[in-house]
């Protein structure tokens, strides 16, 4: 029998559904939005395609650029925090005993099985003024005060007259916290995959040659996990840049990110052309970051070959 690759009929039967799916539900709507971004609003629902660039010009106004910049800074920060937190976690899992490993991986994947909205609301219960963190702190405060009174220092009120709960919710901290929490598994999994492939004798060779644990980590483990770091950074940074649920639910009035602005254009502001233009600017930025990344990778390998 001929190889199935050479049978065109088989190829089309297998290939058509996903290609069709992609065309109808991704390329077509995306093209529509792209066209709308060059249009003008007419009346309440209609959009006339006039090939105007006004929407893009408006997106360049400083108020939007500031929010865009803030979104990028936020996404970079989230990615860096995720990387720093996820690396030890991935290292721990890859070095865990064989029997424990699947359970630890399950713990990482478990949040995926719960709806994002529910998880975010759960965070509100944790962070709010009368939430679990503040309850715990208050309990500690009471215990510490009791201990002080027991020591005869109660009248000085060293810890303040009453417990002051921390303002953890409805600010940028809460947004960052929520985003790190959501994207951590996206960073852990590719890092884990890369570390799992790492030949253990590489680490032993480094130790054998006289390097300490820290030196070995930075000179051997991190560079050899580079592929995992790059995929983790990409799949964390891109969705973090477009996140709108966490700023909406956990953020305060100053926590709006670019995705919230876009969402508002499509919904409450009912300005589809402007929303479409902002969407595409965000997408071009993402493409630009990816292109830069592959260009850097190419330049690096070219430099090494030379």
């Amino acid at each position: 029998m001929d190889s199935w690759r050479r049978s065109p009929l088989f190829f089309w039967i297998i290939g058509l559904p996903p290609v069709g799916w992609l065309a109808i539900f991704f390329l077509l709507p995306l093209s529509l939005i792209w066209l709308i971004s060059f249009g003008e609003k007419q009346g309440i629902v209609d959009v006339a395609l006039t090939w105007t660039l006004d929407n893009y010009a408006r997106a360049m106004e400083s108020i939007y650029l500031e929010i865009l910049l803030k979104s990028i800074v936020m996404a970079v920060a989230i990615t860096v925090i995720c990387l720093v937190v996820a690396f030890p976690v991935a290292l721990l899992i890859s070095f865990a005993p064989r029997r424990v490993k699947p359970w630890l991986l399950l713990l990482i994947v478990l949040p995926f099985w719960t709806n994002l909205l529910i998880r975010t609301y759960a965070l509100i219960a944790v962070l709010r003024v009368r939430g679990y963190i503040n309850f715990s702190l208050e309990w500690l405060w009471t215990q510490a005060n009791a201990a002080l009174s027991f020591a005869g220092l109660g009248q000085y009120q060293l810890l303040g007259a009453r417990f002051e709960p921390l303002e953890l919710l409805y600010n940028n901290f809460a947004v960052a916290f929520g985003l790190v929490y959501v994207f951590l598994p996206f960073m852990v999994l590719p890092l884990y995959a890369a570390l799992e492939r790492l030949d253990r004798s590489m680490i032993e060779a480094s130790l054998d040659l006289g390097a300490g644990q820290v030196r070995t980590f930075f000179s051997v483990v991190v560079p050899m996990a580079a592929s995992g770091i790059v995929s983790g950074v990409i799949i964390t940074f891109i969705p973090a840049l477009g996140s709108f649920l966490q700023p909406e639910l956990l953020g305060g009035t100053d926590s709006q990110l670019i995705a919230n602005v876009i969402e508002r254009q499509f919904k409450s502001a009912n300005d589809w052309p402007f929303g479409a233009a902002l969407s595409f600017i965000l997408m071009y930025l993402t493409f630009f970051a990816l292109a830069l990344r592959s260009l850097l990778a190419k330049g690096k390998s070219a430099m090494e070959a030379a």
């Binding site: 060779a205 040659l209 006289g210 390097a211 300490g212 050899m224 580079a226 090494e304």
Partner: peptide
């Protein structure tokens, strides 16, 4: 610990660091 012993090893898998040139591999120690 192994990094404080004046003993070196050639591993069965060689364990040559793939991200370093031959020079950097030999210079590492």
């Amino acid at each position: 610990p192994p990094n404080r012993r004046p003993i070196n090893m050639v591993f069965q898998s060689y364990a040559v660091f793939p991200h370093m040139s031959v020079f950097d591999n030999v210079a590492y120690g």
